[in-house]
Design a binder for these strands. Structure first.
Lengths: 207, 207
DNA sequence: GGCAAAGTTGCGGTGACTGTAAAGATGCGG
DNA sequence: CCGCATCTTTACAGTCACCGCAACTTTGCC
């Protein structure tokens, strides 16, 4: 997608990856709180101050992949809008994104483990997901021709979608990454699709 | 519920309220980042170090009411379990809790304004809500007789409930606190109840 | 009054993050 | 190939949240 050709761009990209790599290694080894930004900088062979030119906070190194994934999600949503129902469009887009989790399994599990063991990273993760929610709600509002500020429906759809995503990711992580993310995601979306009123009244949950 | 009689307890409670009051005043006046913990301590007439004996972080002063509300929610949920469907039980409990927002309107709006203007407070708020979600999921899992770790349904129900809560609160705040929180909450729950598949296909969202 | 438990305060330290300004690397026209 | 504009890195000094510790004060109780 976004390619670099100048020497400058290439160098920046290389440094960025060096920082990310060093950070994830250290966080995995000593825990998020067990490694300081200075440690990461030393391991990545840069000055401590430089770290903050690449990432706005220590937490954000772990979540650096979110931005690209949101971009991909938005692109998918803009392509296939509402020939079908909004909810089904959301379902398709989120299922598509979840394919990443499979193809980059090792990386994802690494990051998830840090997220769920370090509260401050978890908090930042939720905050970024809330941004996703706002973006998604805006797009849905566009489909429905209403403005996102005052309408309930776009917010609820976006909120439900992100909940489904969180639930399926939690499941995937709990199972050690053995299950298929797209399948889990689809199942979560379908449960919400059917309506929650009757869920759980008779046993409807087994695999 | 939890009453205090000894002098010690009364003093602690008074100090706690003094800190909370001073903090909210200062944060409202200068913004969350515009007032330091030292400022708050000075205004509340305590030593800076003492602040952290009452609140684990600067953010938590603004969200001090969450704990009590969760307690209330849990109590309500434990009373009226699953004679009806789980979702309807959740609906009832959340609607009941939302009455607080009306009766303490001024306080709530104050807090909400700080939450939505200070990112770090917003992040902490989301984190606490995630804790609610876990708790609620546990209770629902109890109703369904499954264990909460591996089952999807309890997580999804809890996630949907919290999403409904966030959506209705956002609406309430956007409207300047004029609408009725229980009504907004009920409407959000009902939209999810009906199922998301058909939502928005034909116009289903007015008044 | 006097002793134990609990609460307060001051001190010193750590670590994330920021503004600033100097030094270094890169791009580019001549 | 040089020199100038631009961008990047770095060092330095500062702010602020937060923590452990040890002295000091207050409260509970006999």
């Amino acid at each position: 997608m976004s390619e670099s050709n100048s020497l400058r761009e290439r160098k920046k990209e290389r440094t960025r990856r060096a920082i990310e790599r060093a950070a994830l290694d250290l966080f995995e080894e000593r825990g998020f709180d067990g490694a300081t930004v200075d440690d990461v900088a030393a391991a990545a062979d840069i000055a401590p101050r430089t770290f903050f030119h690449y990432f706005p906070s220590k937490e954000d190194v772990v979540l650096a992949d979110y931005a690209g994934r949101l971009e991909q999600l938005v692109a998918t949503l803009r392509e296939g809008p509402a020939d079908e129902s909004p909810w089904r469009a959301l379902r398709a887009a989120f299922v598509a994104v979840s394919a990443d989790y499979e193809s980059q399994r090792a990386q994802m599990l690494r990051r998830f483990r840090i997220i769920s063991s370090a509260p401050s990273v978890g908090a930042r993760s939720l905050q970024l997901q809330a941004d996703w929610e706002t973006t998604v709600a805006g797009i849905v509002a566009g489909w429905l021709g209403t403005d996102s500020e005052l309408q309930i429906v776009p917010r609820l759809l976006a909120g439900a979608a992100l909940s489904a995503m969180r639930a399926s990711m939690a499941l995937w992580l709990a199972g050690g990454g053995k299950a298929s993310p797209p399948e889990l995601m689809a199942r979560c979306f379908d449960l919400l699709d059917a309506g929650l009123g009757e869920v759980g009244v008779s046993a409807t949950s087994s695999p």
